[in-house]
């Protein structure tokens, strides 16, 4: 299944947040979207998964999702969005309970995603007992449990400290190597984008437009060891972003952000 955004524009009241954005996510591809804060990248992600209606343009699924996919477009949120009154297991069960699954089937799915994210020992813990990194791992396990065709990741590492971020980035790389998932990955962090993105979409400041789309041809799993080549891409991206970021920084925050 591919996700295609055609000429998307969106406004909040009088404020134009997105203008004429077209992009696509192919199967097995991670598309990173970067841009200065307030450029509408989180809005774009909400539009992509149908949580908000675009002011203009179309969002299309091309091709059928895999037959066993329960929720083809699945989010991973910056603030994890775990229910504090449910345990790790309960939080994963939550998103399976509305699907017609036999109870042993549901159990098997939960066991499977818990072991794939090394969370088996934490199955009965409540979110308040977990560190930020573990919470995000639970959210990843929850996302995997519904077998998404495309993951929509909204700054998934931004609420974490630097060490945890590095660890989870390794998890993502490992996960991609094993499962070749597709994702739209929104971030304001250049390093995350170049470490994970097959293609990187650079948005301008508000109203967000596509400034440039960059392909990175180094395989994702080799990037950690090819830092020098990666650095060239980062530098180029930073050149693109720098002026936008500076201008965005000096704007008054009078509009809904996102």
């Amino acid at each position: 299944m591919r996700l295609v955004l055609e000429n998307i524009s969106h406004r909040y009241g009088n404020v134009e947040v997105l203008e004429g954005i077209s992009l696509e996510v192919k199967e097995g591809e991670i598309v990173a979207i970067i841009g200065p804060s307030g450029c509408g990248k989180s809005t774009l992600l909400r539009l992509a998964g149908g949580l908000e209606k675009p002011g203009g343009g179309r969002i299309l699924q091309e091709g059928a999702p895999p037959a066993n996919s329960l929720n083809p477009l699945t989010y991973i949120f910056q603030d994890f969005a775990l229910l504090p009154w449910r345990t790790v297991r309960g939080n994963i069960a939550l998103v399976l309970e509305d699907h017609k699954l036999a109870s042993d089937q549901r159990k098997a799915i939960i066991e499977d995603v818990l072991s794939r994210t090394s969370l088996l020992d934490f199955a009965h813990a409540y979110p308040r007992q977990l560190s930020g990194g573990m919470k995000q791992r639970v959210a990843i396990a929850r996302a995997l449990s519904v077998r998404p065709a495309i993951m929509l990741m909204d700054e998934p590492l931004s609420a974490l400290d630097a060490q945890t971020r590095a660890l989870l980035m390794e998890d993502f790389v490992g996960l991609w190597r094993r499962e070749q998932f597709s994702a739209l990955y929104v971030t304001h962090n250049l390093q995350e984008a170049v470490q994970l993105g097959h293609r990187i979409v650079v948005l301008s400041r508000r109203p967000g437009r596509v400034r440039e789309i960059i392909e990175i041809d180094i395989p994702v799993e080799e990037r950690a060891s090819r830092a020098v080549e990666l650095e060239r891409h980062s530098r180029h991206l930073w050149q693109l972003m720098r002026d936008e970021a500076r201008a965005a920084d000096r704007e008054l925050l009078d509009a809904a952000n996102g």
């Binding site: 998964g49 949580l51 329960l70 929720n71 477009l73 699945t74 989010y75 949120f77 969005a81 939550l94 998103v95 509305d98 929850r142 519904v146």
Partner: peptide
């Protein structure tokens, strides 16, 4: 929003 994004009724 999380509930909606997972298609909960």
């Amino acid at each position: 929003r999380m509930g909606q994004s997972f298609g909960l009724s």
